[in-house]
């Protein structure tokens, strides 16, 4: 796999920095790929739009920051507005459809999903929306294997929440897979 750059954005408290770390761990520890993760730091990380960046590659990674993202997740309108210019035109966009309501037309695919609602209704708590997103990212990008992602989530899940987190991951994965089929078919038309 060539270098793949992901940017996860939202607001402080949505767990996106942790999601980036888990994605990096899935890639580097369990899929034996190279990965670097970095994140917004300082005042911008506390409220407003915050981001976590992950680069995954088969080869050693030189420049460690995202330059033109291949994938972007936006969990808030503000973070979408702030970071959308950093996504490649053909890149993949995933949004939480409840929070991100205004998306400009673009060449690359747009996946609007009820990430937070899936977390609350299918997995049991809104707080695992970040893990629902990770499931969706695996389905949409294949950047890490589902097996590796499961292991990385389990490593970080606080004791007693393993089942909820795995459920969140699977629900996100399945819902995204279904949506991906539909959207790709529409794009072919």
């Amino acid at each position: 796999m060539p270098k793949y750059e992901l940017r996860l954005s939202g607001s402080g408290g949505q767990g996106l920095i942790l999601a980036g770390i888990m994605l990096g761990e899935a890639a580097s520890i369990y899929d034996n790929k190279e990965a670097t993760q970095s994140q917004s730091y300082g005042p911008e990380a506390r409220g407003g739009a915050s981001r976590s960046e992950v680069i995954i590659s088969d080869k050693p990674i030189d420049f460690p920051k995202v330059r033109q993202a291949d994938f972007m997740l936006s969990m808030t309108q503000e973070s979408y507005d702030k970071y959308i210019s950093g996504l490649r035109e053909e890149g993949v966009l995933l949004t939480d459809s409840f929070f991100v309501t205004k998306v400009k037309p673009r060449t690359g695919p747009v996946y609007s999903m009820d990430l937070t609602k899936i977390a609350a209704e299918k997995a049991g708590k809104k707080i695992v929306a970040n893990v629902v997103s990770l499931g969706a990212i695996v389905a949409l990008t294949n950047v890490v294997s589902l097996e590796a992602m499961k292991k990385a989530v389990l490593d970080r899940a606080p004791s007693g929440t393993e089942e909820m987190n795995l459920k969140a991951l699977e629900e996100g994965y399945n819902a995204a897979l279904e949506l991906k089929g539909k959207i790709l078919q529409e794009m072919k038309k």
Binding site: G24, S28, E34, T36, Q37, S38, Y41
Partner: peptide, 10 residues
């Protein structure tokens, strides 16, 4: 430097 100090790698 701050970049190396805060980035994560395996």
């Amino acid at each position: 430097d701050e970049v190396i100090a805060h980035m994560r790698e395996a």
